[in-house]
Design a binder for these strands. Structure first.
Lengths: 209, 209
DNA sequence: GTCTATACGCCGATAGAC
DNA sequence: GTCTATCGGCGTATAGAC
């Protein structure tokens, strides 16, 4: 594998471990290469982060992009939650530090706004599909669909940070996974009870490993 | 007013405007005093932030501490939401940057963990009281009360950051206030419809000004 | 209490040899 | 492609005069 890829991997690993303030020197040191070498492969620090966001976007699309003709049954929705948890864990530093990253790089900010807009759309669509498949005791008003999607998105993206703030020790995977139970609870009132319990059961299964 | 108070006020104002990375030099400059003078009043930068958290805690207690013998009617709950919005706006930098502040000061971290634990407890109590006062179509299971309280807390505390990330321009008060409508939506399934609409109506009234 | 001046450390980035 | 060496900027904090 080329040094370029290794630098990105190292950046993700180190930032997940120590926060987004990890410097280019530390990345180079961790790979036993020189700072100068790193700057041969990347114009600057920002460019590294931008490419990480590209990877993140791809991974999340694979999770949230629902096929048009497929019915959203409970196990498929559980896939979304479990996949969402994995993405959250893999790139947790990014979610934790999105604001700090974005304020130092306007180009990244634009890309991240796109990322959020697309993500919220996908969540809203998935929610509508789930409700259409198995409606619950309450049905959301038309404007409420979007608000609920935003609530889900904010809660999902904020979870790594919440965990980091409260825990003195570095966060474990299970604490990130817990977010998905909190998320699913927000859907519960709008879904049929048996459908909801099926989703939760599948989720637990998928995230056990 | 003494310089000590003025420094804290300046810190809040500047950090709300430019983010938590505002330096001691900038605070001093903004007040037309010298950096040395600032360090006469405070041991270090961290101490300033710690005192800001103390103020925040007091302000929030005034909003969330529900009197034991008072019934939680719709207008009182609306007070909580409106008061919560005001606190969120007044100290928005702190919510936006809690992790960064906390990671550089273990003493602050401990205080902030207390702050969160107490806040979540207060939210949970308020939620239980509201549900007891005006139960809706769904009633939360016993373990769900806490989870919902956590959801509310995370969403509430994460909102300023969410706004900062998405907006290129500095956030306005109204965008912060919008969070409360999203929060209240999470309660809706568990509250009687007329009670809920009364809460929302009061909220709008209170936050209009 | 308030000032001026400055030490110290850190990090991003570049120059230029190999 | 990879290295060594170094510049330049910024931010915290202190020393010591007034």
């Amino acid at each position: 594998m080329g040094n370029r890829e290794r630098i990105i991997d190292a950046a993700i690993e180190l930032m997940n471990r120590s926060g987004s303030a990890v410097g280019t020197n530390q990345m180079a040191e961790h790979l036993s290469i020189s700072p100068g070498n790193l700057y041969y492969h990347f114009r600057n620090r920002e460019q590294i982060v931008r490419e990480i966001l590209q990877r993140l976007r791809c991974d999340l699309d694979a999770v949230l992009e629902i096929e048009a003709d497929q019915s959203l049954d409970a196990s498929r929705l559980a896939d979304c939650f479990a996949g969402g948890a994995k993405v959250l864990w893999k790139y947790r530093f990014f979610f934790s530090a999105s604001l700090e990253l974005v304020t130092r790089d306007e180009q990244l900010a634009e890309a991240y706004r796109d990322f959020c807009a697309r993500g919220i759309d996908q969540v809203e669509k998935a929610f509508r599909r789930a409700v259409a498949t198995a409606p619950g005791r309450l049905s959301p008003a038309s404007t409420e669909n979007r608000m609920i999607a935003v609530n889900l998105w904010v809660l999902w993206t904020s979870w790594p940070r919440y965990v980091d703030v409260l825990r003195a020790e570095p966060a474990g995977e299970s604490e990130i996974f817990r977010s998905q139970h909190h998320l699913s609870l927000m859907l519960k009132p709008y879904l049929a009870p048996d459908y909801y319990t099926a989703v939760v059961t599948h989720m637990r299964e998928l995230m056990r490993r």
